[in-house]
Amino acid sequence: MKNPEQELAEIKSMMERSTRFLSLSGLSGVLAGIYALIGGGIAWYWLYFPTSQWGDSSQILNSSTLLPRLLLLASSILLFAVGTAWLLSKRKSKQKAQVFWNGASKRFMQALFIPVLVGGLFTFALIHEAAFQLIPANLLIFYGLGLVAASNFTLGEIQKLGFFQLILGIMAAFFPDYGLWFWVSGFGILHVVYGALMYQKYDR
C-alpha cells in the first residue's frame, strides 16, 4: 500500500479533475481586461469627449448614430475576449495534458453562458425601450451571476470575481451617470487584476 497522504491526494485530484474545468487561462483574463479598457476608452471618446467626463448618455444615444457603432464595439470586445479565452485555455489544457472538452468544461460553460445569454437578450430589451442608462448595470449583474454559478465548476477565484462584478453592477444601477466607469472597472480592471492573480497561481 502507498502512503495514505499520497492516496488521499490522489483521490482529491481525481475528484477535482473530473468535476472542475481547471484549464481556464489567467492570461486570457488579463487580455480580456485590456480589450475592455481599450473599448471603454473608445466609448468614452465617442460619448463624452471633449465636453465632460461623465453624465447621462441617454440623450446622446437617442439623437445620434452612435448606438450601432457602440453595439459593434461591444460585440467585438466580447468576441475577442471569448476567442482569446478559448484559445489560451485550450493551449493550457494541452500543456497540462488534460482533456479540454469534457463533462466539467461543458458544465462550466453552461453555468456561465445561461445567465450571460439571458443578460444579452435583456440588453436588447433595454435598447428597445431606450433605457440606455441601465445597460452597464445589467451587463455587470448578469455576468456576475454567470461567474458565481460557474465558479462551482472551475478555479475558486472566479467566485470572488463574480461577487465583485455583482457589487459594481448594483452600484451602477443606482448611479447610472457613472455607468461607463463601473463597466470599465468591472470588465477592465477586475479582469486584469484577477487574471494576473490566477496567472501567478496556476499558469506558471
Binding site: 490522489e10 483521490i11 482529491k12 481525481m14 475528484m15 479533475r17 473530473s18 468535476t19 482533456v99 469534457n102 463533462g103
Partner: peptide, 20 residues
Amino acid sequence: RVMSILMVNEQFDFNSFKEI
C-alpha cells in the same frame, strides 16, 4: 480513481474514464 470520480459525478461514461 474510478471510485473517486464516481463519488462526485452522478454518472461517468466509459470513454470519459479512458480519457481522464
